[in-house]
Design a protein around this nucleic acid. Sequence first.
RNA 1: GCCUAGGUGGCGGAACUGGCAUACGCAUGGGACUUAAAAUCCCAGGCCCGCAAGGGAUUGAGGGUUCAACUCCCUCCCUAGGCACCA
Length: 775
Amino acid sequence: MELYDHKKIEPKWQKTWEKSGLYHAKETKKPKKYVLIEFPYPSGEGLHMGHLRPFIAGDVYSRFNRLSGFETLYPIGWDAFGLPAENYAIKNKVHPSISTAKNIANAKRQLMSWGTSFDWSREINTTDPEYYKWTQWLFLQFYKKGLAYEATGLINWCPKDKTGLANEEVVDGCCERCGTPVEKKELRQWYLKITDYAEKLLEGLKTLNWPEPVKIQQENWIGKSEGAEIEFEIEGSNSKIKVFTTRPDTLFGATYMVLAPEHPLVEQITTEQQKGMVEKYVNETKNKSELQRSALEKEKTGVFTGAFAINPATKEKIPVWIADYVLGNYGTGAIMAVPAHDERDMEFAKKYKLPIKTVINEQGKLIDSAQYNDLDWQEAKKKITKDFGTSKVQYKLRDWVFSRQRYWGEPIPLIHCDKCGIVAVPDDQLPVKLPDVKDYEPTGTGESPLAAIDSWVNVKCPNCDGAAKRETNTMPQWAGSSWYWLRYTDPTNDKKFADKKKLKYWTPVDVYFGGMEHTTLHLLYSRFWNLFLYDQKLVTTKEAYARRVPHGIVLASDGEKMSKSRGNVVNPDVIVDQYGADTLRMYELFLGPHDTSVSWNDQGIMGVKRFLDKVWRYNQVFEAGEENKEIHKLIKKISTDIEQFKFNTAIAAFMEFLNENKQLSQANWESFLILLAPFAPHITEELWHQLKHKDSIHEQAWPKFDEKQVVNNTSTIVIQVLGKIRATLEFPLHATQEEVKEKAMQDENVKKYLEGKEIIKEIFVKDRLINFVVK
RNA sequence: GCCUAGGUGGCGGAACUGGCAUACGCAUGGGACUUAAAAUCCCAGGCCCGCAAGGGAUUGAGGGUUCAACUCCCUCCCUAGGCACCA
């Protein structure tokens, strides 16, 4: 008997499928399914086990839907702009487009070798000018609606390398490459006004079929809070300090104020005497990250400015401090501190011996608050807001820094003209192509390497024809991924980013597989783009992704993250070579539940390999037996498990079925193979053809089950005495309490525990158990 | 620090809406086949006591609710993801 030779059979079918265009999606009369995975970044190391998880899950789901009669779109592309390619270019003087093309070819080979059913006819690449033309065009729509604006912002700055650094390149506050302590540098930046969409982003969440934790995390990230803005006068100054507070009802308990060190009033109000200390403190915090500032919870620090404000309620003089636990970019950058009712304020007040005044009692009623005494705090919140301030809704969400001082990104398609100001590049001049450069080295000024290319920078103003300069910032990597699923519906259109009819057929994405780590950034950013485009009537659905299926990361066998430096990376190529793609696919799914992180370990892979060998042998010696009702249970189990993305238990069910059913009818066996086809597409296709079929197994109809065949006709009932199991007995389905009790009483072991006891209570759960409570 | 999730045999994991904890797989032990090995097939145990029948304990730790808790509640410990320039 011939053994299953994956090295021969798998590539054979991969070629056949590619040639026949089996997985190409078309706009048809059939109902559609749009299955999406987060498109990969083509790194030099190739795809790893982490990519396998969502890609195979998406593949199984897509194949299942095709078999179930849906026109199914499962597209793929490359999110290819980004930091590693640029850093590689600096080091090795290789143009990023060359290293990227090489990496894409390798990753594509890997994806093919896994037997994935991507529609390669729709492949896209964010670094392709035909693609980023539309990324630029879409950016201009934001710009034209006033949702893109310029402002200064702080970047990480390495004073030795004279270059800006990404957060990832900063290790323990120092430059990753040279170890120099990183400073902050103020630079001109472009922002997208995502905060304008805070409310819509929140509203939309309610309509989505997403896991609750993902929704909650986005909700908390947006961080809506309702409160009041209150102004405090400064003694001996015309300026006022404006604060935002969610608890205006505690105004009478505000015993001091705190400004963020970067607050614009700091310089103005600091007294001569305190000046030295304040400046020192401001400089120290400048180079702390926000994380450090809020993490150093235990050691809160601050300095007194020497100035006093007037509490508008009590008219008392209260000191104004600065402290880095107040952040400049949240609220107004200043707080009224109420130590009695806020933990952080309390800690700070204790440390610096500031007064603490309780204004709300245990029943939630106001005390020591003049005419508001005895009011419930919620009632008081309304009244005090009205009397001393204005009500205000505040979000934690901040506007999105949309520029990078780097080469390998989409140029921002704007032109600076002395006469006309900022002018958008006209549509017919898009794309603004990235020029070829010889040097990727940083300019030393913090500007993008593009700024050094005079021939590219100097242009005529599209408005007045006068001398003008191009914007030299590029977009962040997020840009290309903020709309890519729309392009898949119409990837070669050169008139529009996508045809509306095609958008209408395919969108929204039905299921989006992706990592938990993308919850608050990519997932929120791309929802924002879609909501905006919907308002511009450019797309046909409000929300981009109807359903989100997060997955856990694949850890190494030591439970740590796979990484080159730890030397624990498992290369999928090796597994494909040794065991075959079908084994790799099934083992990866069998490792554990889709949404939790799993540890890869090579040992268990033999179990799956043995199972597939068993399937192979079963087919070789196949002799038709009798119809078996067990297949109905299996069809139901596999169908519901795939729909719930419980792939590991589906595979267990396949194994159990084959262990227990040594004989099957021809029809039952063929059903089994079709059920298995989404998981192990190669071996099932081969066996299907061995059974003398001419067409592909992946074009068959998903088997149906008969609900009547699924139910058992007996039930195993557990007999408990005082909650402890003393026997398990078989009964016909739906046995009554009397029947169960009667038989249970005859059981020797049960008798032993009932002897001499009085039954004071019986709990009976139909077809499950009976519990005798005795005294 | 803040937001989100998780902790079950030697290992990966299963368990409906509170109702037989440990399905399935790995590893382990025994047996069959074989000159032998591999492959394959069959069986077993899982922590403690017992030859066995059986009994007891057990789902990160401690407490609570319940006839009944992996599941619900409280406190604590540990791990993972995110924290806005990695994507």
